[in-house]
């Protein structure tokens, strides 16, 4: 087996700022509300918790292969990339600006466990406002692309936000879900979902599963260059945002429940999707997995 290219910048390993600087056209990034402005959480000091100068999210504009884009990157290493008041406000503001700026796309580099418990009300509000702002941007013809492959995955409200994006690209390390593994185990017991069985977590929430059932639109290697190529491709293929698309999504989600509602493990779903050797999926290389995806029709619909 070949080792991953050590010179490639790993998306999973990189910080939000490292991802941004390697992702956009060199030197084009202009930050909004950068760390020098010290817009920090007003709530964390109450809990004697450290704050970050950027509140764990970097927002700004730049170009991608010459196309003007607005972009936000969550820092999964600061409080698990969780949404607080300032963090959410920066993202909502960026999305609302899209209505005036009309960029070729808004890119959200999601890396989040969901809402920050210490500022839950503000965080929940931010999630709702973000979804509303995404819908407004899409309605105005601006595609919103989510890129998921960080340490914290894309959980809680982040999972809901991902569901409202025009397109999603995900890597193997990326996980997309609303309730996280520990939450499910706490509420339903280890018999139902053993959060320590990480192979199970990845089968259920990981990038490959989301790609196979059409919850994500591109599956990419864990490198900044692979995410960049996928983003460029997805911008060009964003679906229309109209009643027909939404009706189709609703119908597909309903049929997904009917088709797979009784499955006890993702491998059963993959078998029903027509994958010949479901057990081989987790260890497949990106190229072999792409071939498998090509044979699965569900992988190409818009339902999350």
């Amino acid at each position: 087996m070949a080792l991953p290219d050590p010179n490639a910048v790993s998306w999973y390993e990189a910080t939000a700022r490292q991802r941004l600087s390697a992702f956009l056209d060199a030197g084009t990034f202009v930050e909004f509300l950068g760390p020098a402005e010290r817009r920090m959480s007003p709530h964390l000091p109450l809990f004697d918790l450290p704050r970050a100068f950027d509140d764990g999210i970097v927002t700004g504009r730049g170009t991608l292969d010459g196309k003007p884009v607005l972009i936000a990157a969550q820092e999964g290493r600061f409080m698990g990339g969780a949404f607080g008041e300032v963090h959410g406000g920066k993202l909502v503001g960026l999305l609302r600006a899209a209505l005036d700026v009309k960029p070729d796309a808004v890119l959200i580099l999601l890396d989040t466990g969901g809402v920050r418990l210490q500022e839950a009300n503000a965080g929940e509000t931010a999630i709702a406002e973000t979804m509303r702002a995404i819908v407004d941007a899409r309605a105005a013809g601006v595609p919103v692309i989510g890129l998921i492959g960080g340490r914290s995955g894309c959980y809680g409200g982040g999972g809901l936000i991902a569901g409202t994006c025009s397109r999603l690209a995900v890597s193997e390390s990326g996980r997309i879900s609303v309730s996280g593994p520990e939450v499910i185990e706490t509420n339903k017991g280890a018999e139902e979902f053993d959060s320590r069985d990480r192979a199970l977590v990845w089968r259920t929430m990981g990038g490959k599963h989301r790609r196979l059932i059409g919850g994500a639109d591109a599956y990419v290697d864990d490198s900044v260059s692979a995410f960049r190529a996928a983003a460029l491709d997805l911008i060009g293929h964003a679906p229309a945002f109209d009643l027909a698309t939404l009706d189709a999504e609703q119908a597909r989600l309903e049929s997904r429940l009917v088709r797979f509602g009784d499955c006890r493990d993702a491998t059963e779903i993959w078998a029903r999707l027509g994958v010949n050797d479901p057990d081989a999926i987790p260890s497949m290389t990106t190229a072999a997995f792409a071939e498998t995806v090509a044979g699965v029709t569900e992988a190409s619909h818009d339902a999350r």
């Binding site: 087996m1 070949a2 080792l3 991953p4 999973y12 193997e172 390390s173 320590r196 069985d197 990480r198 192979a199 199970l200 990845w202 990981g206 490959k208 987790p282 260890s283």
Partner: peptide, 22 residues
């Protein structure tokens, strides 16, 4: 990552499920 270790081993190292990020 654990996956890198599995790669280094030429696929011979078979990590237990609780250490697998894939």
């Amino acid at each position: 990552s654990i996956k890198d270790l599995a790669h280094w081993s030429g696929g011979l190292y078979e990590p237990p499920a609780r250490f697998r990020n894939w």
